Amino acid sequence: MSYQTLQQPVSARLEIKKSAFIAYAYSVTSREQAMFHVEQLHAQYADARHWCWAYIVGDPNNTTSAGFDDDGEPNGTAGRPILNVLQHKSIGNIIIIVVRYFGGIKLGAGGLTRAYAGSAQAAVDQMILCPYVPMTQVNIQAEFATEAQCRYIVERLKGTIDNVAYDKQVLLTVTIAERDIELLKTELAMAGKVLSAEE
Rank of each mutant, 00 (worst) to 15 (best):
W53Q: 02
N139A: 10
R156V: 07
K185Y: 00
Y45W: 12
G72V: 02
E178A: 07
R179K: 14
Y55N: 03
S119K: 03
A115R: 00
A20R: 14
R151H: 10
A197L: 05
E155A: 14
R151T: 12
V38T: 07
R114K: 15
G159P: 05
V98I: 08
M127Y: 01
A142I: 03
W51C: 04
Q87P: 00
L14G: 08
I91A: 06
V85P: 09
I22G: 05
N163C: 11
M190I: 11
G108R: 02
P74N: 04
M135Q: 15
M127F: 04
Y3V: 12
G108E: 11
N75F: 06
Y152H: 12
L188T: 09
F102M: 09
D59A: 09
Q169Y: 02
Q126H: 10
A48S: 12
S196Q: 12
Y45V: 01
N163L: 14
T64H: 10
E39N: 15
K168P: 00
E147T: 08
D125V: 10
K193H: 13
A46W: 07
V99T: 08
T29K: 10
A191E: 09
E73R: 04
A142M: 08
A122T: 02
Y132G: 02
A34Y: 02
E32Q: 14
A191T: 12
P9S: 03
L86C: 09
T160V: 13
I128Y: 07
I56Y: 01
R100A: 02
A23N: 07
A122P: 03
A46E: 10
G76S: 00
I82V: 12
Q44S: 10
M1W: 07
Y24R: 07
P131V: 03
N84D: 13
F68W: 13
K18M: 08
V98Y: 03
G104W: 08
A54C: 03
L188E: 11
N93L: 06
K89R: 15
A66V: 03
E178C: 11
T29Y: 14
I97W: 08
A148M: 12
Q87K: 15
I128R: 15
L184M: 14
E143T: 13
Q137A: 09
I96F: 01
P131H: 06
F36M: 11
N62M: 03
G92P: 06
A48D: 06
F144H: 12
Q33D: 11
E147R: 13
Q149C: 06
